[in-house]
Design a protein around this nucleic acid. Structure first.
Length: 857
RNA sequence: GGGCGGUUAGCUCAGUUGGUUAGAGCGCUACCUUGACACGGUAGAGGUCACAGGUUCGAAUCCUGUAUCGCCCACCA
């Protein structure tokens, strides 16, 4: 025998208990998952790991999708790739901001000076939050997220993610801020980023602008209000609106050009009720004759259609809703009469909701409200994290071009989408539809504090007004900068806010503006050129289907502009975990299921098994039954390995040359097929298929093959016994490696019983190797033999006999009888049959007659 | 209103370019304490493949339509 590696160390009673703690430590010490950064690009497999939000908690959905990625990482590593598998933490943005405020009892005020000795209050008072500088605030964020990250890391390690923990990043750390600012400055220099003052979707709670990608529609109750406008001839025209409070902001009425009902009105002017403002009546194709009365009131701004009309018809601007969501103090132009000003004064300072009630009262008093408001339900735009409807407010914002206003850019980005290898392929249509449906550029500025600040200052003129058209920009070498605490070149800090001095841009970037650079941040862009060349563009972007329009698309945009390429070759899109509530699991269990609880109850490998059973892009139920199956499989691997190694004894080595028996060769031939199939499946990002085929083979291996050769394997004298033992070990060597990506703990445990080193550093099984060992082996021999064995078992089971019961005679007929005949001795031993007969016949399927002893009948 | 995906056993899901009697696991039932495994083993029952048409010698599979679930998008007066 060859290949003897070590003496056996098979435990008497194999167990999953404590297996995670043991191997997490071993892997950490051995560095088996370390990225070899001397590997050339073609031998590298790089992964753009999604950074989880650390201010939240890990959900079972994270466990699900991160396991998918890990199976791929492990497969590629075994295929000889140096795997670049970093971990990021998303601590940038509103969720962290809120958590830090509550945790420390502070709030960020960019106007406060940095205090290097600041310490948060010992007892946080949520009602009296201490105002601190942005830099101090970010330092607290760093401190708290560092704690959160430790918790996350320990769960990831316990789950068995083969991450190289030397490569981590956080989306608010210095490298990320520098990368986000550098990328922005380059976008700006190339004209891909720009500032504009324009109507912007605005969340009045958070008091920040919101991007198209962050919107969601929610059904809200509302009401049509029928309102009379007054024609010059003394007649009226009735409009219907759900937003009567915007009446003072009305700038025009609009009807469809083909709508004959209003043809005579178009081109004239009418007066608004109550406020008496003269507004034009215009025609536009977007006016829908079937909605309301067919003629619409255009305001500054009720919805995005208003913006379109305002822009295309070049209408007046009469804003009345402020940044805080309340009606502004001063009436807009056109509200001149004393009555109108009095009416407006009743609205000033009110919330939109209150203003609506008051306008209705005013309209009733003036007789211009026709009938009662008609209740309806309609979709209203919300910020996905907000709970009040968005308003549209004109503000100065930063944008990055994304094809929303430029056909050439849009086409280029669609081409990038086509270039990307999507798994599953149909996910590409979500990307295409999103890009095709964009209606504006990407708004990246947010009026918040915790985030990457724009690296921009503005000179102040003699009156103290910012000169926005002459921004002051830092040198790339100085990044990251904070314009709220750093002064621009050529100025000193005491000139901040003074006429002739400067002011920093107060805004921060949208969190996606940073996370869209995750491949660059993790890969050492402009920081570690050698690393970057070896990992970028990355091989794989794994992520959820819900953030194709945000994270995936934004990352493509940034790489397209900066590198003229895709950021990665392949995107692997995971599905959802179906809500346990719908399965009534949390109710019947009476408590919430946390990942760590499941990991402890079923073992990490069992949870991974469940996760790996879910295909990419397919929604999967949280199914504890599958976890149980995973646990059972893990234990079976321990026990089957123990058996095979014990039988082989001290001579445990896999010598293919010793495999001579047809049944053994048949098993290896079947194994070669499985290896081939699993390999192809993995290469196609179909981890589920690889697992299924491996698992199916393994169970048949245990149930049938192991039982068939058990007796023979104990035979120390004959070559047939040696053949069985060698075949068992050859198969075991393959199975341990095939399961390694899915069940890394069990795989390394059983591997350690008979081999040195980690199974995770072993080469992935090569089908050709097993094909060679199988020689003339025919899978049909194993199939036919197993079928006969099953027939014998069935006879015993139906007779309610023990599987050990003796069988008098077995007759095998049919076209596959010859295949089974070659393993007659094994069948006789496994089935405890005294006599076996085979009658080959070409015309019938396999039929087995089992004769039990008369006494047993 | 448009798009994407799903609908197969009580449950969770396979079903590879259309090809005999549709598969697996869980659960259920019966039996077996067999020497790797009682955290086990063996076997069994269980399906009009959402519905209606169509193409075909043949349809879970292809086409058309419908229903239903989930998600995404939409100019929501």
């Amino acid at each position: 025998m060859t290949n003897r590696s070590r003496s056996l160390r098979v435990p008497d009673k194999p167990s999953l208990d404590g297996i995670e703690a043991k191997w997490v430590d071993v892997w950490d010490e051995s560095g088996v998952y370390h990225f070899d950064r001397t590997a050339p690009r073609e031998r590298v497999f790089s992964i753009d790991t999604p950074p989880p939000t650390v201010s939240g908690s890990l959900h079972i959905g994270h466990v699900f999708s991160y396991t998918h990625t890990d199976t791929v990482a492990r497969f590629q590593r075994m295929r000889g790739k140096s795997v670049f598998y970093p971990m990021g933490w998303d601590d940038n943005g509103l969720p962290t901001e809120r958590r830090v405020q509550n945790y420390y009892g502070v709030r960020c005020d960019p106007s406060v000076a940095y205090d290097p000795d600041f310490a948060p209050p010992a007892k946080p008072d949520p009602k009296r939050q201490v105002p601190i500088s942005r830099r101090n605030f970010i330092e607290l964020c760093d401190r708290l997220t560092a704690e959160d990250e430790k918790v996350f890391e320990s769960i990831w390690r316990r789950l068995g993610l083969s991450v190289d923990w030397r490569h981590t990043y956080a989306t608010i750390d210095g490298n990320s801020r520098a990368a986000a600012q550098r990328a922005f400055l380059r976008n700006l220099a190339r004209g891909e980023a720009y500032m504009a003052e324009a109507p912007t979707l605005w969340d009045v709670t958070f008091r920040t602008a919101v991007a198209q990608a962050e919107l969601e529609d929610r059904e809200r109750p509302s009401a049509y209000h029928k309102i009379s406008f007054h024609r010059p001839d003394g007649g009226t025209v009735e409009i219907e609106t759900t937003r009567p409070e915007l009446l003072p902001a009305c700038v025009a009425l609009v009807a469809h050009p083909d709508d004959h009902r209003y043809a005579d009105l178009v081109g004239t002017t009418v007066r608004t009720p109550v406020f008496g403002v003269e507004v034009p009546v215009r025609a536009h194709r977007l006016a829908d004759p079937d909605k309301g009365s067919g003629i619409a009131m255009i305001c500054t701004f009720g919805d995005t259609t208003d913006v379109t009309w305002w822009r295309e018809l070049q209408l007046a601007t009469r804003p009345i809703v402020g940044w805080d969501g309340r009606i502004v103090a001063d009436p807009p132009a056109g509200i001149d009469s004393a009555e109108a000003r009095d009416a407006y004064a009743r609205l000033a300072g009110a919330t939109v909701h209150t203003a609506r009630e008051r306008v209705v009262e005013l309209l009733r008093a003036s007789g211009d409200l026709i009938g009662d408001p008609k209740p309806i339900t309609h979709p209203v735009k919300f910020y996905e994290k907000g709970d009040k409807p968005l308003e549209i407010v004109t503000t100065r914002q930063w944008y990055i071009r994304n094809g929303g206003r430029d056909a050439a850019v849009r086409d280029a980005l669609l081409a990038r989408g086509a270039e990307l290898d999507w798994h599953p392929a149909h996910m590409r249509s979500r990307y295409d539809h999103w890009v095709e449906g964009l209606n504006g550029d990407w708004l990246i500025s947010r009026q918040r504090f915790f985030g990457v600040p724009f690296p921009v200052w503005y000179p102040l003129d003699d009156d103290g007004n910012p000169r926005y058209d002459e921004p002051l920009l830092p040198d790339e070498a100085a990044l990251p900068v904070d314009p709220s605490s750093d002064a621009p070149a050529g100025y000193t800090e005491d000139q901040r806010g003074r006429p002739g001095g400067f002011t920093g841009d107060p805004d921060v970037m949208d969190t996606w503006a940073t996370s869209s650079l995750s491949p660059q941040i993790a890969g050492g862009w402009e920081r570690d050129d050698d690393l970057f060349r070896r990992v970028f563009p990355m091989d794989l972007r794994p992520q959820g289907q819900d953030i194709i329009r945000t994270w995936l698309f934004a990352t493509v945009v940034r790489a397209h502009f900066e590198h003229g390429s895709l950021p990665w070759r392949t995107a692997a899109i995971s599905g959802w975990i179906l809500d346990p509530d719908r399965k009534k699991m949390s109710k019947s269990k009476g408590n919430v299921v946390t990942p760590i609880d499941l990991l402890e109850r079923y073992s990490s490998d069992a949870i991974r098994y469940w996760a790996a059973s879910g295909r990419l892009g397919t929604d999967t139920a949280l199914d504890e039954g599958q976890m149980k199956v995973g646990r059972r499989l893990s234990i079976k691997i321990l026990n089957a390995s123990k058996f095979a190694l014990s039988v082989a004894g001290e001579a445990a080595a896999a010598d293919p040359a010793a495999v001579t028996e047809p049944l053994d060769r048949a098993m290896l031939a079947a194994l070669a097929d499985v290896v081939e199939d699993a390999t192809a499946a993995f290469e196609n990002y179909d981890h589920t298929r690889a697992l299924e085929h491996t698992e199916r083979f393994f169970w048949e291996f245990c149930d049938d093959y192991l039982e068939l050769v058990k007796a023979r394997a104990y035979d120390e004298e004959s070559p047939a016994g040696a053949s069985a033992r060698a075949a068992l070990l050859v198969a075991l060597s393959a199975l341990h490696r095939l399961f390694a990506p899915f069940l890394p703990f069990v795989a390394d445990e059983v591997w350690s019983w008979w081999r040195d080193g980690s199974v995770h550093a072993e080469p992935w099984p090569d089908a050709a190797e097993f094909r060679a060992a199988a020689q003339d082996g025919e899978p049909a021999v194993l199939a036919a033999t197993s079928e006969v064995l099953r027939a014998v078992r069935k006879a015993k089971s139906e007779a309610k006999l023990s599987m050990r019961a003796e069988v008098e005679r077995v007759v095998v007929r049919g076209k596959n009888a010859g295949s089974a005949r070659v393993a007659a001795d094994d069948i006789a031993a496994a089935g405890r049959a005294a006599a076996l007969e085979f009658e080959a016949a070409d015309d019938t399927d396999l039929r087995v007659e089992v004769t039990l002893p008369a006494a047993a009948e």
